[in-house]
């Protein structure tokens, strides 16, 4: 299939509304309350190998909510060969839970057989673009659906980069037909860290290729911003969200909260704030950021990715033979 085919598929993807990330800490609440959330996003790697309770819970949710798979290990920018075992597992789960789409990041996570489990930046050059275009085409053919790629938070840029990130994403979408996941918090973080204008970044993206948005909290460390996903969305990000909502006509929007995860009602309430900002700018837009030391915080936390086998409920019984 060519880029036009996948582009047409992207145009047909539904506007799912306001969604939340599915987190282990909320399993019981969701199963008991079946909250009125428009849709859930899962971290693909959290479920593709699960044969236990996580998969059992997911199957139940698939009966009631639209689901979307969001991955962190595709490593589309790597020079290592694509992992077709991993892709097979993605494809299998996507079919089983009728995932509305499958997304990952414009990044590399490892090379030479290693996985750093971080979303590392790629040099934004013609050579890299050609490399990633080729890989996206292969991935889409294999998955038999368009791939949706997200702009990562970046803390550095390469001196030999020649293409801006939004242009890189726009050309990637044009040449492959892939869709875009616009993380407006990542735009804010990346633009601060690289001395760029975040509104100009959003305006430079092709709005008709954007399928989904991400919102999240971050920590301002003075010299740089860390994408911590551990707090409420800050007002400059809501302003970017408002611009992106207007430009895209209101695509599926999801709030990420991956560390210091609050109780479900609080998490949901933070998401629903998005309704206030779809059409007008927040009043505290120019508030000075609170600057905190970097100590103890990380970008894109990982610890929520593995199930806490005994943190939620007494699920261990001990007996004597």
């Amino acid at each position: 299939m060519d880029a036009t085919y996948y582009q047409q598929q992207v145009q047909k993807l539904p506007k799912l509304g306001l969604g939340l990330g599915l987190r282990h800490a909320h399993f019981n609440y969701i199963l008991e309350q079946w909250p009125a959330v428009d849709w859930f996003e899962i971290i693909s790697e959290n479920f593709i190998d699960s044969g236990g309770r996580p998969r059992y819970v997911l199957d139940q949710l698939a009966e009631r909510y639209p689901l979307v798979m969001h991955g962190v290990s595709l490593s589309v920018g790597s020079t290592d060969a694509l992992n077709f075992d991993y892709l097979s597992r993605l494809k299998q789960l996507a079919r089983a839970i009728r995932s509305a789409w499958v997304s990952d990041h414009l990044c590399w996570t490892g090379a030479m057989g290693l996985n750093t489990h971080d979303l590392l930046p790629v040099p934004l050059t013609e050579e890299t673009l050609a490399h990633i275009v080729g890989r996206v085409r292969v991935i889409q053919e294999f998955l038999e659906r368009p791939l949706i790629l997200e702009n990562p938070s970046t803390y550095l840029s390469f001196a030999h980069s020649t293409i801006s990130e939004p242009e890189f994403l726009a050309r990637l979408a044009e040449e492959t037909g892939c869709g875009l996941l616009l993380d407006v918090n990542n735009v804010y973080v990346t633009c601060f860290n690289n001395d760029l204008d975040p509104l100009a970044y959003i305006d430079a993206l092709p709005a008709d290729r954007i399928v989904q948005m991400h919102l999240a909290g971050h920590q301002h460390c003075g010299t740089h911003i860390i994408d911590t996903h551990d707090r409420e969305v800050l007002s400059p990000v809501w302003a970017l969200f408002q611009r992106a909502w207007q430009r895209t006509g209101g695509v599926a929007t999801l709030l990420e909260w991956d560390s210091q995860i609050p109780p479900f009602p609080e998490y949901h309430a933070e998401l629903l704030k998005a309704r206030q900002f779809m059409n007008e700018l927040p009043p505290a837009l120019t508030a000075r950021p609170v600057v905190e030391a970097e100590t103890g915080v990380v970008s894109n936390p990982l610890s929520f990715l593995t199930p806490g086998i005994m943190t939620e409920e007494p699920i261990i019984a001990s007996s004597r033979g």
Binding site: H117, L120, Y155, L156, F158, A159, N194, V298, S299, L305
Partner: peptide
């Protein structure tokens, strides 16, 4: 020469953000 500086950080300082993050994130796991 490889990593561009920002207005507030050198290339090395920016790379160090990733290095600190690598261990901190996996140690948490």
């Amino acid at each position: 020469q490889l990593i561009a500086p920002s207005s507030r950080m050198s290339g090395g300082q920016r790379l160090a953000v990733y290095q600190r993050g690598y261990f901190a994130r996996l140690l948490e796991c």
